[in-house]
Design a protein around this nucleic acid. Structure first.
Lengths: 125, 125
DNA sequence: TTGCTTAAGCTACAAATGTAAACTGCTTTT
DNA sequence: AAAAGCAGTTTACATTTGTAGCTTAAGCAA
């Protein structure tokens, strides 16, 4: 999802990507289907469509074993940092600190978050 | 854009909202059209559609003067913090500090940002 | 007052998205 | 081998989004 990737991952597709990201290895449709059917109540057909679209978009890849196995092409980190930068560009005029200021002022940060952040921005360089 | 608001503001619509947010008072279509025609190259018809959709979505309001004047129903702050929380929910599993960690590790923060943040998380409580 | 301009409202239409059925050809089972 | 099941592919269809035209009525310039 460098900036060259045109199409975003949609909400439904993201659910599939999350599975792929959290799997230790490529997954066969069976596994993907099973989990999403349970967690989302989607029909097998729906799940197959989402998988295909991810492959067309180039964010997941299929690998022929006996049956196809699927794995992510972009990592969760790559995607989430892309999505974050996209948000900053679109609504914070490119100022990352404005995003954080907004979080602070809207009470979007838990005590734990704040503790972690204080740690994060303390001695490090 | 409390959580009760179903439909998001789309990218094109956001451009209109930005104008409304940055205006000191309600704006007549004339003004909106003029600016967006210049900055975005959109046809008047397009701009009118976007305005109507914002009104239907309940995020902008029209007020009859002589001609209608438009103003935001939700503030830019409300929207941006909603969008940020939405991002955190969707891709950071609800952990705001993960978002910030991601920004840090992906070099999404400028020197200035970091300085501001260090300030922000220093003595305040 | 008589047009010209153009808000407002309605309609349009392609692409993207959410959701899913139909078809086709392997695999596996009996 | 014949039948059953399901992966992969194709097609479908409603809704949302991006983009814009047409129509009607009203305000303004001449």
């Amino acid at each position: 999802m460098s900036d060259n990737l045109a199409s975003k991952i949609t909400d439904s597709e993201l659910e599939v990507m999350k599975l792929l990201w959290h799997a230790s290895d490529a997954l066969p449709v069976t596994d993907i289907r099973e989990q999403l059917q349970r967690s989302k109540g989607w029909e097998p057909a729906t799940i197959k469509t989402l998988i295909s679209r991810l492959v067309s978009k180039g964010v997941a890849r299929q690998e022929k074993r006996n049956v196809y196995y699927y794995s992510p092409v972009i990592s969760e980190k790559e995607y989430s940092s892309w999505a974050t930068k996209d948000l900053i560009t679109r609504i914070y005029n490119g100022k990352a600190s404005d995003l954080i200021a907004s979080l602070v002022s809207s009470n979007g940060l838990s005590k734990d978050d704040i503790a972690e952040l204080r740690e994060m921005f303390k001695v490090e360089e």
